[in-house]
């Protein structure tokens, strides 16, 4: 299996290529949010360096979200276009899981945190158990206080990871000790190898065209509209 993994869900961008279990190379950038100008050049230069042609790829893996809406769309659009035109498999991996899976050393609940503004977070709960990586609570958009209350009730050791976790230090320390917040920089940013590994294990999606980012939140205008209207799964896009 020749796998290409893409993560543009937050400021860090990773592009990783693997041949089965072997990592062939990785480009990781952490300098701008404008992945539009950096993603394709990174893909083509990595592929050229490791002597792979586009059609050699058999699986495309993408961090599907949550994260920055624009970033997610750049990664997902690129990934689904590549998978479709190269007739390769497509796998979407939770962007939160990528960071959580980097904490294999921790025995307890691993809580990746992405800032969702206005004291909200994107988060979920994960666990490494006997060498297997498990999701304990699904990814969601949630108020930090509500999330911390819920996690406290789980009565298990917790580790908050991700660069944004420290933004909520004040809130977290109301519920847990400061030691629960991971300060290890190498673990707090997403690593392309973690994404590639998860993408290797997951089942590919069945419908590449229908594959979408996991925004985990409706657009505000839609939320407001739904307060007074019934959606009924209507199709809003039509061919003209």
């Amino acid at each position: 299996m020749n796998l290409l993994a893409i993560d543009t869900s937050n400021q860090v961008m990773t592009v990783t290529a693997c041949q089965d279990e072997k990592a062939l190379g990785q480009i990781q950038l952490n300098f701008s949010k404008n992945h539009s100008t950096t993603l394709m050049p990174a893909i083509s230069s990595l592929m050229e360096t490791i002597h792979l042609k586009p059609h050699d790829l058999t699986r495309i893996v993408v961090a599907k979200g949550p994260g920055s809406y624009t970033g997610l769309r750049i990664g997902v659009t690129t990934a689904k276009t590549l998978a479709w035109t190269l007739k390769s498999e497509l796998v979407g991996v939770s962007s939160l899981a990528v960071v959580a899976a980097q904490c294999k050393f921790f025995d307890g609940l691993i809580i990746p945190i992405f800032d969702a503004r206005r004291k909200n977070v994107y988060s979920g709960a994960y666990k490494w158990k006997k060498g297997r990586f498990l999701q304990v609570i699904k990814d969601q958009h949630i108020a930090i206080k509500q999330w911390l209350t819920l996690l406290q009730q789980m009565a298990e050791p917790v580790l908050f990871v991700g660069e944004d976790a420290s933004l909520f230090l004040e809130e977290i320390t109301e519920f847990f000790s400061e030691a629960a917040v991971c300060k290890e920089r190498t673990i707090n940013i997403p690593n392309g190898l973690s994404l590639a590994q998860l993408g290797m294990e997951q089942q590919p999606v069945e419908d590449i065209h229908g594959f979408l980012p996991a925004y985990l939140k409706l657009v505000e205008a839609e939320e407001k509209w739904l307060e007074t209207h019934n959606d009924e799964g209507k199709n809003y896009v039509e061919r003209i």
């Binding site: 586009p54 659009t77 590549l82």
Partner: peptide
């Protein structure tokens, strides 16, 4: 945001082919 979808897809398609 809308432009970036067409651009991302066109770039990926152009590179792949």
């Amino acid at each position: 945001g809308a432009l970036l979808i067409g651009i991302s897809a066109a770039k990926a398609f152009a590179w792949a082919n």
